[in-house]
Design a protein around this nucleic acid. Structure first.
Lengths: 92, 92
DNA sequence: TTATAGTATTGACAAATATCTATCTGATGA
DNA sequence: TCATCAGATAGATATTTGTCAATACTATAA
């Protein structure tokens, strides 16, 4: 885990809508359509946000038939918080 | 610690310059002029960034004669990482 | 009071970005 | 093959924000 990766994750979390999505996903895996229900944004906007969350590694996407299920990548999250807390040793 | 406060902290950390400052301060308390030395920005820009870091609670400012010393507020940092990790119980 | 020095504020501007509409893609089922 | 549907991409726009130069503030020292 380096500062660049950390910065990317922090940028991903530093938007109100994406932080809301993050909170929703903390409760467990969710389909894109379910996430969309809880937010006042359009589908392309959600798609854009999910890409940012996935690209930085904080979220994982899993296609199941026609739906995409998203979940938090707990290892990435832990790497981020460890880095912030100064426990910069190894991993990810 | 609520999501709003968390969002403010994440926004504060989601800028490359401020994350560098954060890293510097993780090594210990620093004078503004020392921070400035390690960054290619002007003094007003640093002042602007320090205000953001202090306003969200992640950094503390301490005036000593004519110099201002900045440090990380470890309680605030822990509250942030706890919140991200889902340990949302109480405090700050 | 006046000069000096470290830090903060203001105002302007350019770059980044969150959002939308419109459209595309890819897979399924008739 | 064609229609349908979930999700992705493209292009445009408005807002946010990082930066600077200029200036103000505040405390000290002469």
């Amino acid at each position: 885990m380096d500062a660049d990766r950390c910065l990317k994750m922090l940028k991903a979390l530093s938007d109100e809508t994406r932080l809301k999505i993050f909170e929703m996903l903390k409760g467990g895996k969710l389909c894109a359509c379910k996430i969309l229900e809880g937010l006042n944004i359009t589908q392309p906007t959600l798609s854009h946000h999910m890409k940012i969350l996935c690209d930085c590694g904080l979220a994982d996407a899993e296609r199941d038939w026609k739906w995409t299920h998203y979940s938090i990548n707990k290892d990435a999250l832990k790497a981020l918080t460890d880095w912030l807390n100064g426990e910069n040793e190894g991993k990810i």
